[in-house]
């Protein structure tokens, strides 16, 4: 995986951004994350992860339109970049490769 590193939480967030496609913004990401993992997270953790990955170029963001929701504050939507997708793929490949090397013995 070379120069790029991705922590577990960041990887989860990135996966969800990719999965949510064009509907990924802070609250939506948080809710999906909590649903999938059945854990509670703080929104600030999500933002930290998003900002960090944005700096690395794994995601990009843009503002949505002004609506009456959220007191007129705009949502910020995140999209996975090609680089982010590549990282996810590499990460998936790596795990798959190693996973496949596990001897097929029954532990049970």
């Amino acid at each position: 995986m070379g120069e790029y590193s991705l922590g577990e939480f960041q990887e989860l967030v990135l996966l969800i951004v990719a999965a949510l496609d064009k509907e990924a913004y802070g609250v939506a990401i948080l809710k999906n994350l909590e649903n999938e993992t059945s854990k509670k997270f703080n929104i600030s953790a999500v933002h930290v992860a998003l900002k960090r990955m944005e700096e690395k170029g794994f995601v990009e963001s843009h503002y949505g339109g002004i609506t009456k929701e959220r007191g007129g504050r705009r949502k910020k939507f995140y999209l996975i970049t090609a680089l982010g997708k590549k990282i996810l793929d590499e990460q998936y490949d790596l795990r798959t490769r190693i996973y496949q090397r596990i001897p097929k013995i029954s532990l049970g």
């Binding site: 913004y25 802070g26 609250v27 948080l30 703080n42 929104i43 600030s44 933002h47 503002y63 929701e69 959220r70 007191g71 504050r73 705009r74 949502k75 910020k76």
Partner: peptide
């Protein structure tokens, strides 16, 4: 600021319906 505030307020408004006081404390903590 706009993003963070927006997300926080959205969450707060939702949680407020369940438990107003906890929502407030959670907001402060966040």
């Amino acid at each position: 600021l706009e993003e963070i505030e927006g997300d926080m307020v959205e969450l707060f408004e939702e949680e407020y319906l369940d438990a107003p006081i906890r929502a407030k404390w959670k907001f402060r903590w966040t």
